[in-house]
Design a protein around this nucleic acid. Structure first.
Lengths: 338, 338
DNA sequence: AAAAAGTGTGCAAACGTTCCCAAAAACGTC
DNA sequence: GACGTTTTTGGGAACGTTTGCACACTTTTT
């Protein structure tokens, strides 16, 4: 059972031309007479010729495909990023291969290496919350694989990066809680490894400082697995509640929803007494109870920018040495009182 | 800037063997002496040899990749299906290419044709809500592309299909509303084209009949775009409210969340007075206000089953003539009173 | 001791492209 | 009409694999 289709050879034979001529006509390259070009194009159209991308890839030693690694696609932030990536990639005639790390370092490495062996032309990656050792990425990069990081970026890796203004996003959210009268504001966040964790913690601290509220380390809880296991969230919540916070600032999509669920489960009464602000791109926030203040990242745009940078690296004639870190602004969506 | 790696040729040269021998050793095929096999394997390991899948694809005329078309990945039902698909595909050494139709027929067709030209070995597809004409799929199928439908399947297309027990799911949900005392139950559903729309409507009707409630066509509202545009939802809600429903049964993920939002927007008071039951695989239902009764589909399993069927078709020696339609049971998650 | 069977290896073609190089055709110029 | 120049075309190698076939060598059979 095989999938049959006509090739350049078939066209050449049918038209009494050589494959080189047909190839040139189709690709509109080099010197080729208008006449034969039209002839070939017309015939190709007629037999519904589709170039075999595999043969082309083999010859050109590139696949016109880019790999994406996110922790999971069932996360509005990431799926919006992916939409942004696709919007650019398809325009530029690349296709994308999406892989999920499920916040596991092992899975992430496996996926990346699988993609690399699949001859992707470049990689877009947001690190898993477990990832600390990125040597395997360095190796691939050194061998010539273009890589652009987004959202969760490593510090010491010279390449393009695209992130949100995490400091400001956190600052704004925390400030919002303070301005609505909260004073004991907990902070629930991701693994300490992640860039976003550090930056968001700084924003939180800065807001406290501005309003002369003492920073208390015990009010900060880290979740090693990024909230993939409900147990870790429940544990964190259980440790926080005795400190009587009147507000919580949460630093990622998955954590935000997970934390509210954990709160509901642990103490259904308290959940409406604590003000919640968190990073999330969920398009369902309006349905949530309790309602919350959310920090929305420009996810779609982030995907677009990252893809543009990646494609520029892929298509660069000589190796790139000037790298950018693009910082995009977040948006604070204040809780609606009901 | 190119990505370099060692080939079978390099190994052959280094070891003083022919490429055929190396190939056979690596693939563990045919007669080959234990000795040379070990030698080759050891060397390959040492230089970290990775077979070039593109060359292999070209030679074998298959790509070891399967295409997936869903309406959108930012939908828990579909992302769970995708997880199921991946779980099987990766095991069997296939990789997957995901495309989104965004409920648009044009986009769906474009994506499918793009995938086909990318030499996928098979296709898993849930039709878009706009799709009526599937001749383009028939053509590809006739040319030898294996196709398995899931969730949204066409009636008149002889191939494997995997669906949920939509009739029973709807019946259960509607019955639940009736048993909790509702008598004027509206039904908000997808485009009439879709198989799921018909089946779910039948389940809804059957439940009404069982409890001797008259079926009123005006209580059924169809959404042509599957709830992709909030306008169509608001319109539907506006038309329904004057009929004073005391319950609504909604027939898909996107519609369920969209409908609640539209209700909230149109009439924030009423939303807590109408009982809602709907198909959704959202893992955030517990956070929703108002809370609702949900029909959960076995999405992960659906992905798994569909993938197994597809791979069996791909790897079949002779063309398959016996087709199955697998029906998986849904689960009713009753609203928790609070 | 010769024939037959079995085992391991290499040669070379093929998959469908692209593109360098050379050959052929068309055209100008003297 | 001979020559150079330009334009168009074809031949064929290459990309990295897999695999049918042939060959050489070894072992078994008669």
């Amino acid at each position: 059972m095989r999938f049959e289709t006509s090739t350049i050879k078939d066209i050449a034979k049918a038209l009494g031309l050589s494959t080189s001529t047909v190839s040139r006509a189709l690709r509109d390259r080099y010197e080729i007479s208008e006449e034969t070009k039209k002839l070939v194009l017309a015939y190709a159209e007629k037999v519904n010729y589709r170039a075999n991308p595999i043969a082309r890839s083999l010859k050109e030693r590139r696949s016109y495909s880019i790999g994406i690694i996110v922790s999971e696609i069932a996360n509005n932030f990431f799926s919006q990023v992916i939409n942004g990536i696709e919007s650019i990639a398809y325009d530029r005639d690349y296709h994308v291969i999406i892989s999920q790390s499920h916040e596991s370092y092992k899975q992430e490495k496996l996926n990346v290496e699988h993609l690399a062996s699949r001859s992707i032309d470049g990689l877009l990656i947001a690190l898993s919350s477990e990832t600390q050792d990125i040597d395997y990425l360095r190796n691939l990069y050194a061998k010539g694989l273009p890589i652009v990081f987004f959202d969760r970026v490593p510090e010491d890796f010279e390449t393009h990066k695209v992130i949100a203004n995490n400091f400001k996003g956190s600052f704004d959210a925390t400030e919002h809680l303070i301005l609505s009268g909260k004073r004991t504001i907990a902070h629930l966040t991701n693994s300490e490894n992640l860039s976003i964790t550090k930056e968001r913690l700084e924003g939180y601290k800065a807001a406290l400082t501005k309003y002369h509220i003492e920073f208390k380390p015990e009010l900060v809880k880290y979740c090693q697995h990024g909230g993939m296991h409900s147990a870790e969230l429940e544990q964190a919540v259980k440790e926080l509640l005795p400190l009587n916070p009147d507000g919580i600032f949460i630093s990622s999509d998955r954590l935000t929803t997970g934390c509210i669920m954990a709160l509901k489960k642990t103490n259904p009464e308290i959940v409406h007494k604590i003000a919640i602000a968190g990073f999330t791109n969920s398009n369902l926030v309006e349905l949530f109870s309790p309602s919350l203040t959310s920090v929305k990242q420009p996810a779609f745009e982030m995907g677009q920018v990252a893809t543009e940078l990646l494609i520029s690296m892929i298509e660069a004639k000589r190796s790139v040495t000037e790298f950018e870190t693009k910082v995009l602004d977040t948006e604070l969506v204040k809780m609606v009182k009901r």
